[in-house]
Computed example of a mutant assay.
Amino acid sequence: MNNWPEGYGRRVLDQVDSTNAEAARIAPGLTGPEWILALRQTAGRGRRGRPWADPVGNFAATLVMRPAETPDRIALRSFVASLALYDAVAAATGRDDLLSLKWPNDVLLNGGKLAGILLESTGMAGQGISHIAIGIGVNLASAPDMAQVEPGATRPVSLFSETGIRIAPQDFLNLLAPAFARYEEQFRTYGFAPIRELWLSRAARLGQVITARTMRNETTGTFETVDETGNIVLSTPKGREVIPAAEIFF
């Protein structure tokens, strides 16, 4: 706890339905950002409402914040969280060479999905966003079977299965929270540009052919870059495609 970031609250729950749901419940009474860690999560969620498997020993936490910013800028915090996760895993393992970042919000270890991020916001019509919840799940102890994930999805892995390293969720939070605070300060001070540059230096499959799938269609092309607003850019036979939201398949 000696390295815990100043100004950030912390609460550890034995069990909760969802840390993002708990964030929504406590947000009105908060005066600053707060981390919520659940040692057991009974109704965890991933992107597009998918269930998030959360066995005992894995990491399930949410950072709840109340930023007074526009929605497009708030959404860029998924990149801030990705970089913080990368650093936390590198600190836990001593091996940053095994890690990469998959757009828009996954951390890969040995090419498999180790962690995911779910950013949600709440607000009233005409009054902007009241708070955001940055939910983070990390397979510290175990990973789901391939049968539990979408066909073609990245293979799930755990920190233990790939490295033999065991780390308690509370100890992992002690690595993650200071890393996030550092990148958050950089983001607030210098904007998205340095965050984007560092994220691209750690990006998985940059310069390679990937497929971006939305609810309506899919686009296959060379992963060219992430632009100044966080969109992924693919070079395709039809030209340059800028995609704001999609699932990425390798």
Rank of each mutant, 00 (worst) to 15 (best):
M1H: 14
N2L: 06
N2C: 00
G7W: 05
V12G: 12
V12M: 10
L13G: 00
D14P: 13
D14G: 14
V16S: 08
S18A: 10
T19Q: 04
A21H: 11
G32H: 13
W35G: 02
I36V: 14
L39P: 12
T42H: 09
G44F: 01
G46I: 10
G46A: 09
P51L: 07
P51H: 08
A53D: 11
D54H: 13
P55S: 07
N58S: 08
F59Q: 00
A60R: 02
A60G: 13
T62I: 02
M65H: 01
R66C: 02
R66N: 05
E69N: 11
R73A: 01
L76A: 04
R77F: 03
R77I: 03
S78T: 15
L83R: 07
A84M: 13
V89Y: 09
G94I: 10
R95V: 00
D97F: 09
L99Y: 03
S100N: 05
L101N: 01
L101C: 09
L101A: 07
K102D: 02
P104N: 02
N105S: 09
N105E: 04
D106T: 11
V107D: 05
L108T: 04
L109E: 04
N110K: 14
G111F: 06
G112I: 09
K113I: 12
L114A: 11
G116W: 07
L118M: 08
L119Q: 14
L119H: 03
E120T: 05
I129F: 03
I129Y: 02
I129R: 02
S130F: 13
H131W: 12
H131P: 04
A133M: 10
A133D: 11
I136N: 07
G137Y: 08
V138C: 14
L140R: 07
P144N: 14
A147F: 11
Q148G: 09
Q148M: 15
V149A: 13
P151R: 11
P151I: 14
G152W: 13
G152M: 13
A153I: 07
A153Q: 08
P156Q: 11
P156I: 10
V157D: 02
G164E: 03
I167Y: 00
D171M: 09
F172H: 03
E184S: 08
E185D: 12
E185M: 10
Q186P: 00
G191Q: 06
G191M: 07
W199C: 02
L200S: 04
S201Q: 08
R205K: 07
Q208F: 09
Q208I: 06
T211S: 13
A212Q: 02
M215C: 10
R216K: 15
N217C: 12
E218G: 11
E224S: 10
E228S: 15
T229K: 14
I232A: 06
T236R: 03
K238V: 05
R240T: 13
R240M: 11
V242K: 08
I243D: 08
P244N: 08
A245L: 10
A246I: 06
I248L: 15
F250S: 08
F250P: 14
